[in-house]
């Protein structure tokens, strides 16, 4: 019996009593009692639907669901091992922040992969900010030289920061929901088929493009079939050019993977 199997998504009284009995039994057992492991496993299994439920909140962030469930389960196990039933809390209440904590940490570690030094992370944020500012001033995207001068770092540092961004691109957790929508004017863009007439592999491509999020599809169309620059797209969508670049790179990579499989 698991959380999800109950119609309301909540524990039935019987389930709750069963869990309480398990905790009571654990209390009575010596630390080295081999039956502890069996009960612990059962508690973990019972609460896995909670992990799935919490992991699903992050399913659109570009990470594999299995990975999220796996790190979430680590959080669940930590919660079970640290749980004190005498405090009167339900395990699910106690475990939720621990599971979410592990999932969020996974995003922090993954998106800023373990390999990107802190210095570059900071510089990358500065480059993004400075690039936006200079774009307004210059009415075009700045060059690496201009960014290096403005931030008083070497051109190599700027390149490293740009490289780190593309190498470990992943969706930001800090984006607002609006960040993922596109202005309504853009959702009425003409059919992509117009630009596609001359493409041989369009039949393979079509389902892949249709499966893209609206914003990614709009960026693809604006860049490749309407000849807009990344900066112009950024302005149209109200996001930074660097963000456009990141989304474009990711979209092209996913299309290429999709076509290789298709």
């Amino acid at each position: 019996m698991t959380l999800e199997e109950t119609s309301s998504g909540r524990w039935t009284d019987a389930q709750r009593q069963h869990e309480h009995a398990m905790w009571a039994a654990l209390e009575q057992m010596a630390p080295d009692d081999p039956r502890r492991g069996v009960l612990r496993d059962e508690l973990i299994t019972m609460h896995l639907p909670l992990v799935h439920h919490l992991a699903r909140r992050y399913r659109d962030r570009g990470e594999d669901m299995d990975d999220l469930v796996q790190v979430g389960t680590v959080g669940l196990i930590k919660a079970i091992d640290g749980f004190d039933p005498s405090r009167g809390l339900e395990l699910s209440t106690y475990a939720t922040p621990t599971i979410l904590g592990e999932i969020k940490r996974h995003f922090r570690d993954r998106t800023w992969a373990l390999h990107v030094p802190r210095r570059l992370q900071v510089l990358q944020a500065q480059v993004t900010e400075c690039s936006d500012r200079l774009t307004l001033e210059l009415h075009r995207a700045p060059t690496v030289r201009e960014l290096a001068a403005a931030l008083e770092v070497s051109e190599a540092d700027i390149l490293d920061a740009l490289d780190a961004r593309t190498a470990y691109a992943a969706d930001s957790l800090h984006g607002t929901p609006d960040d993922d929508s596109i202005p309504s004017a853009l959702s009425t863009l003409g059919s992509m088929d117009e630009g596609f007439e001359s493409i041989d592999d369009r039949e393979t491509l079509r389902p892949l493009i249709e499966a893209l999020p609206d914003r990614e599809r709009a960026i693809l169309q604006m860049r490749f079939f309407q000849g807009m620059s990344q900066s112009q797209i950024a302005e149209a969508l109200g996001i930074s050019q660097m963000h456009v670049s990141r989304l474009l790179a990711r979209t092209l990579a996913s299309l290429r993977d999709g076509m290789a499989q298709g």
Partner: peptide, 13 residues
């Protein structure tokens, strides 16, 4: 591309 002094969007292209 940076040595050619291309703006960032062209560099990424």
């Amino acid at each position: 591309a940076a040595r050619a002094d291309l703006p960032l969007d062209q560099l990424e292209d």
